[in-house]
Every structure is written in structure tokens, then in C-alpha cells.
Design a protein around this nucleic acid. Structure first.
Lengths: 234, 234
DNA sequence: CGGCTTCTTGAAGATATTCAAACCCAGTGG
DNA sequence: CCACTGGGTTTGAATATCTTCAAGAAGCCG
């Protein structure tokens, strides 16, 4: 897996006022006066699978809003292994710690081609001082992140491997009942199992026809069967 | 285990300005003017092991700051089992969701005799509107809760049972190298293993003399050995 | 076509679960 | 006082699940 830093992937300055995701993103509540407070460019970044948005321990210089794609937050374990701590979907925020002046706690890596907005910390600081409207949104973000984290524990770290995988798939299905899966290594790091066992488990669900491989790592899901498997292990 | 609701356990109204934990608690940054905004009583509550502070799904009417003791936040699984999502130690905050007007996401239950302050939501709302000083603290709380949650995943849901238990013990040791443990059932719910296996694992650490039972559920810890066990499984 | 990585498969052994039974201990009532 | 009871804990044995190590298959890229 090639890992590129994000320096070269600049797309252009964002037009937040016209953002199609206004409802979703951090600036949902801001008005025109608030936008006038922004004096630093908010970049819109496009990057491909494997791109490292930031690394654990770095100074938190910016915060990211995900527009398209999928991003993993990973923490490295004492023994060198990695554990995926959270998955970010469009509308989610990465690097919230930055808004508190803290270094990043995870490494953020794109799992698919991804588009996101990079909001420099000074912008957050400025807005934070001037408008309370941002606070509500920031808190909501913290809250959402925490729910995600709790859910990861109850959904993806509890029960047998097939249950966990089924629940993960249910979190990832598109409205058309398809899923793009990522590498078996990442799957293992998500579910807390070995790469090999992740592979076996995928095969097992395929054998049961709970999922059907359409093309490389794209699957058609039998949602109701996945729900059965995820709920109680038969 | 008897579970009492907290109605009867009222100790008195808190004197926040004089609070010995000012550094630790939510109101650390407030000044006299801010305190004047508080028009509802902040109760100081004392409760014993097993007391339910609040239950998942209830309207979030207040937020709690833990002064003494230990509190578990549990989420109930689809299959009826419970998983302990977080452990709160003195200085931590329970029920942050309340400050966003959301229902509680967990049930909070005391694992030991506990003292805490109950801050009604209107107080938070009022202060939130009037003083930005509270925001920083609230964010810090969210941040801390999130770190806790992430840590639970990497420390206590990864690796073999003895490793997990060792790491949990290290989180709980007092300065004098002793630990008060809770029930085997709760241990299992923390570590993601069965009650029986939790029991066996405790016995195993006792056999290795990594811990020594002083009295019922009080142990003397060999911290350095626990660290070894927690790091790599031998 | 190599050479590389990722995915899959196999088999042996380690680790955890399940179900059942024994145990301990505190509280109850005869 | 002692037997009885009920909760939580411990133990045992059989089984299920996961890991480990090793090797083969399948893709991908130069």
C-alpha cells in the first residue's frame, strides 16, 4: 500500500457558503457575518486510497470534514500492531483534537478515494471566540465521535467473528445493498481478529450466500440474513 | 445486587466556589460572576455500590461530576447481555449528552461507594449561553471521554485475557499498589469475556503472584510483573 | 515473464465458551 | 444453634472458536 502525504492533492479553496453539504458539515449554523471572520483558506482536498491525512502525535494544525469516501483512524499498539479505532463516513469530522490545541491522537488514512475540507486551526479558534454557534456543532461532533467509539465496542468487539463482520457490513451497506470492502488486514484490525481469520470469515459469509462477490471487493448483501447473523450466532 | 435509585441520597447543596476539586471539575474556569448565574441547586450526592445514577434512554436532566468512587457506564446488547463501555474515576463527568439536550446513552451505576455532584441541565444551558469559559471545559470533557473510549478498545479489547486483565488492573491501581476489584460478571463485561473466564484469569494472575488477595476483592499488585503481562503475552 | 503483495487454505495448538456441578458465605427461619 | 437457601465464585470436561505458522494461489506492476 503506497502512502502519500496530502501535499500535492490540493483542489481549490472551498466555497463554504455554497457547500452542498452545508447541513452536514461543521459550519451548518454559521451566517454571513461569521463567514466574514474566516481569513484563512479552507482547502478542498481530493485524495486517493492510502493517503495519510495526518499521523498520530503530530501537532493538530487543522481539522477535516469528510465529504466523500471513507477514512480510518488507527492507533498503533505497543506490540507494533495496529487497531482501527474509528471509521469516518461523509459528514464526519477528523482531528477534532486540533480544536483544543492538542496533537493528533490517531493516524487518519483514506480507505477509498476521498474528498474533504481542511479547516486550519486558526479559523476554528477565531470562530470559536466570536460566535457561539460553532460550539453547538463542535459538541455535536464530539458527541457523534463518542457514539461511534462506543458502538465500535459493542458492535464490533463483542461476539463471534461472523457476527462482528455482519454488523460491520450492515454499517457499510449502500442503499442499493452493495458494499465495497477493504483489505483483509484492515478488516482484522477493525474486528479485533487476525488477517487470516478475517479472510476465513468473509469466505464463510460468501458460502452462506449472505454476501455475493460482484467484482473485486464489491459485494451484494442479503441484508436480512446479515441481520440474523449479526443478532444471534446460529 | 440491590439497585437503589438516587432519590434518597441527597447530601446537601454544593459550594462550588470552595470545592476542593476545583481544578478537576467542570467549573474550573468560572469566576464569581459566572457563579452568580447559577440559580438552581447543585446537589452533592452520596451513594453506595449498585446505585443507578441514571438509565439509558431517560431524558438527560442533569450531568454528574464524580468526586469519589467508581462508576460504570453500561450499554445493553441486543441479546440482553451488558457491556461496560467506560469506567469513570474521580474528576470525570457522566451524562455529558444531557448538555446537548439528548437522552442518556448508557446506564450509569456506582461500582463502589461514591460521591458526586449533580448539575441540572438548566444550569449548564444558562452558563453555556453566558460564558464561553465553560465551553472549553465541556470540550475537554468530551475529549477525555473519547480518549477513554479509544483506550478501552486498544487496551481492554485487544489481546489475550491475561493481558487485558493486567492492563485493567494497571488502570485501577492506587498509589499504594493495591486494587479493589469488582464482581467477576462486571470484569467479564469490561474485558469482553465470560464471567467464568474472568474468574479463571484472576486465579491465573494470583497463581503467578502478579496479584495477592489481601481481603475479599482487595489485591496487592506486583506492578512491574503486571506491566510485563500487559505488554506481551509470554 | 518474474517479483511482489495480498488473499486463501490447511493443520496443529492455544485460547475461550458452554454447561454442569461443587463451593463459599451471608442471611433467614426453624 | 444449625440447617437451609440463594447469590456469587470457582472448577472441570467437552467443545467451539481463534491464532499461528507455513505454504499455495491469485493479482498487480515493472
Amino acid at each position: 500500500m503506497k502512502r502519500r502525504q496530502i501535499d500535492a492533492a490540493w483542489t481549490g479553496n472551498a466555497q463554504c457558503q455554497d457547500c452542498g453539504l452545508r447541513e452536514l458539515v461543521l459550519f451548518a449554523d454559521l451566517d454571513q457575518n461569521d463567514f466574514n471572520l474566516i481569513h484563512l483558506p479552507i482547502e478542498e482536498i481530493t485524495c486517493e486510497t492510502g493517503t495519510v491525512l495526518y499521523s498520530a502525535g503530530e501537532e493538530g494544525a487543522a481539522l477535516f470534514t469528510l465529504r466523500v469516501g471513507l477514512v480510518k483512524l488507527v492507533q498503533y499498539l505497543p506490540d507494533g500492531g495496529q487497531r482501527i479505532v474509528r471509521l469516518l463516513k461523509p459528514g464526519a469530522t477528523a482531528g477534532l483534537e486540533a480544536s483544543l490545541g492538542q496533537p493528533y491522537e490517531h493516524s487518519a488514512i483514506a480507505l477509498r478515494p476521498t474528498r474533504l475540507c481542511r479547516i486550519p486551526r486558526p479559523v476554528i479558534d477565531r470562530l470559536s471566540d466570536e460566535t457561539p454557534r460553532l460550539h453547538r456543532q463542535l459538541m455535536q461532533r464530539w458527541h457523534a465521535a463518542l457514539r461511534e467509539a462506543d458502538g465500535r465496542l459493542t458492535d464490533l468487539s463483542t461476539g463471534k467473528a461472523p457476527q462482528r463482520l455482519a454488523r460491520l457490513l450492515l454499517q457499510l451497506v449502500e442503499p442499493d445493498a452493495t458494499v465495497s470492502l477493504f483489505s483483509r488486514e484492515d478488516l482484522g484490525a477493525m474486528l479485533g481478529i487476525t488477517t487470516e481469520h478475517a479472510s476465513r470469515t468473509v469466505v464463510e459469509l460468501k458460502r452462506k450466500n449472505a454476501i455475493t462477490e460482484l467484482s473485486a471487493n464489491r459485494f451484494q448483501c442479503d441484508v436480512s440474513q446479515l441481520r440474523d447473523i449479526g443478532a444471534a450466532d446460529s
